[in-house]
Amino acid sequence: MDHTLESLAAEQHAGGGKKEIWRVTIILSVFTIIELALGFLLMSVVNDLARHFIKGVIIIFMLAKAFYIVGYFMHLKHEIRNLIMTIVVPLFLFVWFIIAFLSDGNSFKNNKNEWDRNHKERSKEPMPKHEEGTHTLE
Protein backbone atom coordinates (compact mmCIF):
# COMPACT_ATOMS: atom_id res chain seq x y z
CA MET A 1 0.00 0.00 0.00
CA ASP A 2 1.38 3.35 -0.97
CA HIS A 3 1.45 5.88 1.82
CA THR A 4 0.76 9.28 0.39
CA LEU A 5 0.71 12.48 2.40
CA GLU A 6 -3.03 12.72 1.85
CA SER A 7 -3.65 9.34 3.43
CA LEU A 8 -1.40 10.32 6.34
CA ALA A 9 -3.34 13.52 6.78
CA ALA A 10 -6.58 11.57 6.76
CA GLU A 11 -5.34 8.98 9.26
CA GLN A 12 -4.18 11.38 11.92
CA HIS A 13 -7.58 12.18 13.27
CA ALA A 14 -7.34 9.82 16.23
CA GLY A 15 -8.18 11.52 19.48
CA GLY A 16 -11.16 13.11 21.13
CA GLY A 17 -11.55 16.20 18.93
CA LYS A 18 -12.85 19.48 20.32
CA LYS A 19 -14.21 17.94 23.50
CA GLU A 20 -10.76 16.68 24.40
CA ILE A 21 -9.23 20.10 23.68
CA TRP A 22 -11.57 21.82 26.13
CA ARG A 23 -11.08 19.12 28.74
CA VAL A 24 -7.29 19.52 28.57
CA THR A 25 -7.61 23.32 28.62
CA ILE A 26 -9.56 23.13 31.86
CA ILE A 27 -7.11 20.66 33.38
CA LEU A 28 -4.13 22.87 32.48
CA SER A 29 -5.83 25.98 33.89
CA VAL A 30 -6.80 24.23 37.11
CA PHE A 31 -3.28 22.86 37.58
CA THR A 32 -1.83 26.34 36.99
CA ILE A 33 -4.18 27.83 39.56
CA ILE A 34 -3.21 25.13 42.07
CA GLU A 35 0.47 25.85 41.37
CA LEU A 36 -0.09 29.55 41.94
CA ALA A 37 -2.02 28.87 45.15
CA LEU A 38 0.88 26.74 46.37
CA GLY A 39 3.27 29.53 45.35
CA PHE A 40 1.29 31.99 47.48
CA LEU A 41 1.18 29.48 50.32
CA LEU A 42 4.97 29.12 50.07
CA MET A 43 5.43 32.80 50.91
CA SER A 44 4.15 32.33 54.44
CA VAL A 45 5.83 29.01 55.21
CA VAL A 46 9.16 29.21 57.05
CA ASN A 47 9.74 25.59 58.04
CA ASP A 48 12.37 24.11 55.67
CA LEU A 49 10.81 20.67 55.49
CA ALA A 50 7.36 22.07 54.73
CA ARG A 51 8.86 24.34 52.05
CA HIS A 52 10.56 21.38 50.37
CA PHE A 53 7.34 19.41 50.50
CA ILE A 54 5.33 22.22 48.85
CA LYS A 55 8.01 22.68 46.21
CA GLY A 56 7.86 18.94 45.51
CA VAL A 57 4.09 19.15 45.02
CA ILE A 58 4.53 22.11 42.65
CA ILE A 59 7.02 20.07 40.61
CA ILE A 60 4.55 17.18 40.40
CA PHE A 61 1.92 19.56 39.00
CA MET A 62 4.52 20.95 36.58
CA LEU A 63 5.23 17.45 35.27
CA ALA A 64 1.51 16.72 35.01
CA LYS A 65 1.04 19.86 32.91
CA ALA A 66 3.95 18.81 30.70
CA PHE A 67 2.28 15.41 30.25
CA TYR A 68 -1.01 16.97 29.15
CA ILE A 69 0.65 19.42 26.74
CA VAL A 70 2.83 16.77 25.10
CA GLY A 71 0.26 14.00 25.20
CA TYR A 72 -2.83 15.85 24.01
CA PHE A 73 -1.89 19.23 22.50
CA MET A 74 1.14 17.80 20.73
CA HIS A 75 -0.87 14.66 20.09
CA LEU A 76 1.93 12.29 21.12
CA LYS A 77 -0.43 10.05 23.09
CA HIS A 78 -2.28 9.16 19.88
CA GLU A 79 0.85 8.36 17.85
CA ILE A 80 2.23 4.91 17.20
CA ARG A 81 3.91 3.32 20.21
CA ASN A 82 7.34 3.10 18.56
CA LEU A 83 7.29 6.83 17.82
CA ILE A 84 6.36 7.59 21.43
CA MET A 85 9.26 5.46 22.61
CA THR A 86 11.86 7.15 20.38
CA ILE A 87 10.84 10.50 21.88
CA VAL A 88 10.25 9.54 25.50
CA VAL A 89 13.04 7.04 26.20
CA PRO A 90 15.95 9.48 25.52
CA LEU A 91 14.31 11.98 27.86
CA PHE A 92 14.88 9.58 30.75
CA LEU A 93 18.51 10.75 30.60
CA PHE A 94 17.17 13.77 32.48
CA VAL A 95 16.60 11.62 35.56
CA TRP A 96 20.33 11.01 35.76
CA PHE A 97 21.24 14.58 34.77
CA ILE A 98 19.12 16.07 37.51
CA ILE A 99 20.23 13.71 40.27
CA ALA A 100 23.92 13.88 39.32
CA PHE A 101 24.23 17.62 38.79
CA LEU A 102 22.10 18.81 41.67
CA SER A 103 23.81 16.52 44.17
CA ASP A 104 27.16 17.65 42.78
CA GLY A 105 26.20 21.28 43.34
CA ASN A 106 25.03 20.47 46.83
CA SER A 107 28.23 18.66 47.80
CA PHE A 108 30.27 21.53 46.32
CA LYS A 109 28.43 23.90 48.64
CA ASN A 110 28.90 21.67 51.67
CA ASN A 111 32.60 21.14 51.00
CA LYS A 112 33.17 24.82 50.49
CA ASN A 113 31.36 25.71 53.71
CA GLU A 114 33.39 23.11 55.57
CA TRP A 115 36.88 23.68 54.15
CA ASP A 116 36.98 27.29 52.97
CA ARG A 117 37.34 29.11 56.25
CA ASN A 118 35.90 32.44 55.14
CA HIS A 119 33.26 31.27 52.73
CA LYS A 120 30.45 30.78 55.20
CA GLU A 121 31.10 34.07 57.03
CA ARG A 122 31.37 35.96 53.75
CA SER A 123 28.06 34.65 52.51
CA LYS A 124 26.40 36.00 55.66
CA GLU A 125 27.52 39.59 55.04
CA PRO A 126 24.52 41.87 54.54
CA MET A 127 24.06 43.45 51.16
CA PRO A 128 24.69 47.22 51.27
CA LYS A 129 21.51 49.21 50.89
CA HIS A 130 21.09 51.49 47.89
CA GLU A 131 19.01 54.59 47.52
CA GLU A 132 16.04 54.25 45.21
CA GLY A 133 17.16 54.86 41.65
CA THR A 134 20.90 54.75 42.29
CA HIS A 135 21.88 51.26 41.34
CA THR A 136 25.61 51.20 40.90
CA LEU A 137 26.66 47.62 41.26
CA GLU A 138 29.10 47.21 38.36
Binding site: F94, I98, F101, L102, S103, K109, K120, S123
Partner: peptide, 17 residues
Protein backbone atom coordinates in the same frame (compact mmCIF):
# COMPACT_ATOMS: atom_id res chain seq x y z
CA UNK B 1 16.62 23.94 27.67
CA UNK B 2 17.08 21.09 30.11
CA UNK B 3 20.82 21.74 30.21
CA UNK B 4 20.18 25.44 30.91
CA UNK B 5 17.73 24.72 33.69
CA UNK B 6 19.89 22.02 35.26
CA UNK B 7 22.88 24.38 35.18
CA UNK B 8 20.70 26.93 36.96
CA UNK B 9 19.60 24.34 39.52
CA UNK B 10 23.17 23.15 40.10
CA UNK B 11 24.38 26.70 40.68
CA UNK B 12 21.52 27.35 43.03
CA UNK B 13 22.29 24.17 44.99
CA UNK B 14 25.97 25.20 45.15
CA UNK B 15 25.23 28.67 46.55
CA UNK B 16 24.56 29.52 50.20
CA UNK B 17 21.79 32.06 49.67
Amino acid sequence: FGAFLIAYGTTRFATNG
